[in-house]
């Protein structure tokens, strides 16, 4: 392994950490306001499909992004209504969303996303190297030669940290997730806060899904999320429900992924399956060594007195 290889691995780390990080921010908005979200996988999958579908038929990546984010927000809204209005078990509601997304995307794929009807992919977002910064040795290539969603993810990490800890919105969100009764007493609308944050989370999960179909692969495949939504959840838990923690965990998973890609090309003797297993084994180890401290009211429906 030489210097170029290390740069390559780290650049790939940041890129493949993107959907994991965005997915965990999706979970963060939902869970910090008190709604468990194992539906990130389904929301991502839905957005990946709708992004590919709309961008294909309009031949516009822009409309693909809009449609993808809206469709994921729709799924999040369903999760929110079922969890908040109908007080259903939130983990089961999440499973429903995941199953629904798998079924619906598969159904639409078979009718509209295969020949002869399929007009063809609208391509992927171009790489946008940032002037000057990209010329910094080593770091320039790793951080500043990426496609747009990667940058968006990095910026969002700081924005979400600020919103969560330094704005009234963030304070309300945390209050509702920790102690909804107290928040209610102070005049915070618990239901509105939860609905709003779950749906914002859905849009972020949508962006993660769009990364898959419009930035990474360029088309939609059945079940293309491949468990990334669940890994995002593990990153959120490992990062103890904070943006920087989740970002760090996502980088760890990105690294595992990048090393896998690298090793597979350079040392083909190692069976691919063992390398593919790495992120999953890592998730289990990570979940075992750090006891989670979840928001106190997460998973509990709120019943107004």
């Amino acid at each position: 392994m030489n210097f170029t290889d290390i740069t390559f691995i780290l650049q790939l780390t940041v890129a493949t950490a993107t959907p994991i990080a965005l997915g965990s921010y999706a979970g963060l908005f939902s869970e910090r306001s008190g709604v468990v979200n194992i539906a990130i996988e389904g929301m991502m999958l839905m957005a990946a499909m709708m992004g590919a579908f709309v961008s294909g038929y309009t031949q516009s990546l822009f409309w693909g992004v809009v449609a993808g984010m809206l469709s994921a927000a729709m799924m999040a809204a369903i999760h929110a209504v079922v969890s908040i209005r109908f007080k259903t078990d939130q983990i089961i509601s999440g499973m429903v969303i995941n199953l629904l997304a798998a079924g619906f995307t598969g159904h639409i794929y078979q009718i509209y996303l295969v020949p002869p009807r399929w007009p063809g992919s609208a391509g992927t977002f171009p790489e946008l190297p940032i002037p000057f910064l990209k010329d910094i040795p080593f770091l320039g290539k790793i951080l500043f030669q990426h496609q747009p969603i990667v940058y968006t993810m990095i910026i969002l990490t700081f924005v979400i940290h600020y919103v969560l800890f330094y704005t009234p919105w963030g304070l309300r969100m945390r209050a509702v997730g920790e102690h909804p009764e107290a928040a209610d007493t102070l005049g915070i609308n618990v239901y509105f806060t939860r609905y709003a944050n779950v749906i914002i989370g859905g849009m972020l999960a949508g962006l993660a899904g769009i990364w898959l179909s419009l930035e990474w692969v360029g088309t939609f495949n059945i079940n293309m999320t491949g468990g990334r939504g669940y890994i995002a959840l593990a990153a959120l838990i490992f990062g103890r429900w904070t943006p920087f923690g989740a970002f760090g965990a996502a980088l760890l998973f990105g690294l595992a992924n990048a090393v896998q890609v690298y090793t597979q090309t350079l040392v083909p003797e190692i069976p691919a399956e063992f390398l593919q297993m790495m992120p999953y084994v890592l998730t289990i180890i990570v979940a075992a060594v750090r006891r989670p401290i979840p928001p106190a009211a997460v998973g509990q429906p709120y019943e107004k007195e």
Binding site: V82, F86, K87, T88, D89, I92, S93, M95, V96, I97, L99, L100, A102, G103, F104, T105, G106, H107, Y109, Q110, I111
Partner: peptide, 26 residues
Amino acid sequence: GLSVHIVSILQAFILLFVAAPSIVRY
């Protein structure tokens, strides 16, 4: 010529309505 994925959709809704009987009652 429909996708077998329709079955997942059906199962998802069955799961939803059973887990949330309040929706069915509503």
